[in-house]
Amino acid sequence: MSNKNKEVLLSVKGVDISFDVGKKKPFRAVKNANFDIYRGETFALVGESGSGKTTIGRAILRINELSKGEIIFKGKKISGKISKEDDREVIRSIQMIFQDPAASLNERANIEYCVSEGINNFHLYTDEADRIAKVDKALMDVGLLPEHKSRYPHEFSGGQRQRVGIARAMIMEPELIVADEPISALDVSIRAQVLNLMNKLKDEKGLTYLFIAHDLSVVRFISDRIAVIHLGRIVEIAETEELFKHPLHPYTISLLSAVPMPDPQIEKPKKHVVYDESKRDHSGPKPILQEIRPGHLVFGNDREMAEYEAKLQEMEKAEAEALKG
């Protein structure tokens, strides 16, 4: 499918986010981020902690201010000063799911309150019966029962609490969900359940996700496209299969080598590839994020792009030959 026929739901354009602005040494957490998210896709943002993933997510939700660039949602600018109505619309239609389900729920409020808080604040129901119906529906959508409403978060397991967190987002009927490491804090055995649930809701409701993670193995299963971010800079974007098949940026390759594979014969002799930005050859003109194949972008200057191109052609040639048999 060509990206041209798809509707762009969200556009991040030339975004810089700095902290400690006004101080002597402001910290540039996000550097010139550019990407589009299409309606109905799961777009993953992958990188290590401190790389700026969450900062971008929070900027989309209008929690972090931009120091440069803009964010467009459904054709409208949602960054910086916007009207009260637009602000309301953003808060309703872009929802967030957090890493730590325990910390994101008010421990003293029962499940009914946790889930309905958003529609209560915005009065998104016709009457009390409608309100209750909406809460029940949201709970059932995530595999919980209406009878759970009177319980408190601490009476649930980690996986169930994450379901409550998802119900809390879903009840707003959002168009975009920013999921910030939604399964990192969960036990392995429940991770798969939550991923399945997110996939199911996406298909049923035509949701769009921005899925933030540090682990490529999780992302491969759930996302359509992946952006890899390192030290505030997006270094590679591609469709999931393409990124795994033809990783080009050395940081992407180091992330790939870090995924532990459940096979001792393969895993034991494995050499992890370590990427050290400071040891990189920075000679030549300034690098930028540029397209190397339709939909596949890499961060590099002319010299680096020529290297990536040669490498990519070699891989493509080998694949073509393998196909011929």
């Binding site: 290590e48 870090a258 995924v259 992890h272």
Partner: peptide
Amino acid sequence: LDVTIQAQ
């Protein structure tokens, strides 16, 4: 820790 740090 992150996967890359975990590997190290």
